[in-house]
């Protein structure tokens, strides 16, 4: 299946938080997990669920907001990435301009690598 994939030129960027052992690297093609639509505090927006994009940069390791929201410490910290999506991927024929892009921060557990088909 052809997906619309954006260009990414990973910028020189110093992650503001330490990075442990990231599983993903800038340029990698990833899919956002669909998720079950369950309750709780989740920072992966619905409109990105199942979308395929490219890692734009590593932001660092941060405590899990899904746990922090309930007063727990959110450890172990997880790697946060900025992921770039083509608007055509997100909105299909309704995209204003298919090559426009959207960048969002997504935590590693919400991403899976997509291997070239």
């Amino acid at each position: 299946m052809t997906r619309a994939l954006p260009q990414v030129t990973p910028p020189p960027f110093a992650p503001p938080c330490p990075v442990g052992t990231p599983c993903l690297a800038p340029g990698d093609v990833v899919r956002v997990l669909p998720g079950g639509g369950g309750p709780g505090h989740v920072r992966t927006p619905w409109y990105l669920r199942g979308a395929v994009g490219r890692i734009e940069r590593i932001c660092g390791d941060f405590p899990n907001p899904e746990e922090l929201a309930y007063g727990r410490d959110g450890r172990p910290a997880r790697t946060l990435y900025r992921v770039r999506f083509a608007m055509a991927e997100l909105w299909g024929a309704r995209a204003e301009r298919p090559e426009d892009t959207l960048d969002a921060e997504i935590f590693e557990p919400w991403l899976e690598p997509v291997h070239a088909s």
């Binding site: 992966t44 941060f62 959207l102 960048d103 969002a104 921060e105």
Partner: peptide, 8 residues
Amino acid sequence: RVHDSTAD
């Protein structure tokens, strides 16, 4: 290019 400020 839109940036959605979803995390930290």
